Every structure is written in C-alpha cells, then in structure tokens.
Simulated scan of single mutants.
Amino acid sequence: MSWLVTGGAGYIGAHIVRALADAGLGPVVIDDLSSGHAPFVPDGVPFVRGTILDRELVADTLRAHHAEGVIHVAAFKYAGVSVQRPLHTYEQNVEGTRVVLAAMADAGVSNIVFSSSAAVYGTPDVPLVTEDLPKRPASPYGESKLIGEWLLAAQGVATAASEKPLRHTSLRYFNVVGSGDPTVYDTSPHNLFPIVFEMLRDGKTPRINGDDYATADGTNVRDYVHVADIAAAHVVAAQRLADGRSIEPAYNLGSQNGLSVRQIMDAIARVTGIDFTPEIAPRRAGDPDSIVATGELAARDLDWRMRYSLDEMVRSGWEARRNAG
C-alpha cells in the first residue's frame, strides 16, 4: 500500500514525501513541475509527471500503486498573485481538488489529507485563531482553499452510507519555513525567508513593511512553523485516517505564540553572520497587527508541536539555500 502525494516535488510536498518514507508508508508523487522540482523527489520514490486536472492519470496512478490514500498538497499557493489570477487559482485549486476526489472515487480510494491554509480565516479580529473562527477569506487563494474543504465535506456526506465512505481532514497553517533536508528549500518568490535570503545573497538590504503596528516591537507578528513539523503532522493524519481512528475535519497547525518580522530579521542576521539593518518601508494595505493560530487540537490528535527554535528554523533554511548554489 502507498500514499499519493500531489505536488510532491514542491517544497512542502517533498518534505511530506520524506516523512512518509521514514514512516514506511510508501509515497508516490504526482506533480506537473509548475512550481516543483524533480530533484526534490528522493531516489526510489515513484514519480509521475502530470497535472491533477487529468482525472484518468490520477485514477490510474492510484490503482497502479494500490494507494491507501492521498495527501493533496498540489495547489497555486500565491495569495497575493491570486488576486490578479483568480480564474487560474480556481482552476488549479478548486477544479484540481474536485478532479482528485473524482479520481479517488474511480479508484476506490477513500482517505485524503488536504493541505489547506489559514488564509481561509482572512484577516481575523482576534489575536489567536481557533478552528471554529468564522471563515472570511480575503483572496481567491483563501477562497479556493475553503471551497476545497467544502468539497471534502460534501463528498464525505455523499459517501457516508457507501462501502467506502470518504474519510478526510484539512490542515491549516500560515508561514512554513526552514528545511528538514539539505537538498530541499523554499523557492517561493513571495515568502519572507527566501526573499530575505536572496536579498542577502545579492548584497541588498532586506526591508520591513511598517514598524508602527500594535505589537511589542512595532512590526507584524505572524505564525512561523518548521516544514518538518508540518510534514510530520500530515503523516500522523494519514495514519489516523487509514487506521479508522476518529479525526477532526480540520486542524490549525499553529505556534500559539508567533514571531515578529523584526525578530525574524534579527535571527537571520545572527545565524548568517551578515550584519544588516533592515530598511523600513511603508505598511502594506490590509496587513493586520498580529495573526497567530492555536495548535491545541492538533497537539491532541496529531502529535503537533514546535520542535525547532527560531535560530534552528533560520539555520536549516539558510543552509539548504546555500547548498543549492
């Protein structure tokens, strides 16, 4: 038996693949390499290059590898860009999820872990986000992830009385950082860590967007969680589904405390040994003071915990990026 990881050649997906392999769960990857990288897939792991929009391909892959379930990571993940490309975002994330569910039904596969996002909450007016908070996504990306969760729930209801009812859970998280493997790093042009790393490598000065927020040091506070911890939670969720144990429809993978942008910058300077003073740029419209998620439910059910310090998160990400050349 195996688990199919859609988007398994991406930054997060590749870490999930490694965690599945370490747990003996036999990962299989499908990825169109639109943002993933074939070298991120470990040797010996079956890799199918193709799109999740191809229902027959997904179903055939599930059958060929006797898949026990799917960890659905593939998505267009750029919230800001999704505002300019809503149709593309919906095609990849909503239609893509629908096709994956249809292919699972075709192949008789009934377990799915959905890589969702804390973007489903939008800009909450509370400092600590819990799973029952109203969902008010502020971008097509956030909307697409919420609709993905709805699709799973609807298919679960539709198949409840069948021989193989859909068992599912959705994992919501904010800012994934660091590296659990020196050959895999975050290549997103929109995430804070890789942006700062690239600027430092180019001899440029990183910037902070606003330092007059209602936080301890005036800069935004956000949830930063290590990618290896994220991967481990996906594996435990898959195991619970496969074993028939009870599982919540959704979990926040949050730090409970959060870190400010200035704390991140100070840690990057400390760990890299590159002394810099960030430039202060104007605020970005719509940026809230602080958004941090609780991880209590995930700690109870998914062995969720923060295993890495801030310096360890920075160091692992920086070393992986430097290894890439």
Rank of each mutant, 00 (worst) to 15 (best):
M1H: 11
S2A: 15
T6I: 02
G8I: 08
G8F: 08
G10E: 04
G10C: 01
G10T: 05
Y11H: 04
R18N: 05
A19D: 08
A19Y: 09
L20P: 12
I30F: 02
S35F: 01
H37F: 13
G44D: 11
V45P: 08
G50S: 08
G50R: 09
I52A: 02
L53N: 08
D54S: 06
L57H: 07
R63F: 01
A67R: 06
V73A: 05
A74S: 04
A75T: 03
A75G: 00
K77V: 13
A79N: 10
Q84L: 14
Q84I: 00
H88M: 11
T89L: 03
E91K: 14
E91G: 13
Q92P: 00
E95R: 15
T97G: 01
D106E: 06
G108N: 04
V109H: 07
S110M: 04
N111D: 08
A119M: 03
A119L: 05
A119H: 14
V120K: 13
Y121I: 04
D125Y: 01
V126A: 06
L128C: 12
V129N: 08
P134V: 11
P137H: 10
S139C: 04
S139Y: 04
Y141A: 08
K145L: 03
L146P: 09
I147L: 14
E149V: 10
L151H: 10
E163I: 04
H168R: 11
L171S: 10
N175E: 09
G180A: 13
T183A: 14
F193Q: 13
I195D: 12
V196E: 04
L200P: 04
G203T: 01
A214Y: 01
A216D: 14
D223L: 07
V227T: 12
A228N: 02
D229S: 09
V236I: 15
R240W: 03
D243K: 14
I247K: 10
Q256G: 11
L259R: 14
A269F: 06
R270G: 00
R270H: 13
T277W: 02
T277K: 13
P282R: 12
R283H: 15
R284G: 05
P288V: 09
P288D: 11
D289P: 03
D289K: 03
S290P: 01
V292F: 07
A293D: 06
A293C: 14
T294E: 13
E296K: 10
L297N: 12
A298G: 02
A299Y: 02
R300W: 03
D301Q: 10
W304V: 02
E312T: 07
M313R: 12
R315G: 02
S316C: 01
S316P: 05
R321N: 04
R321P: 00
R322L: 03
N323F: 07
G325F: 06
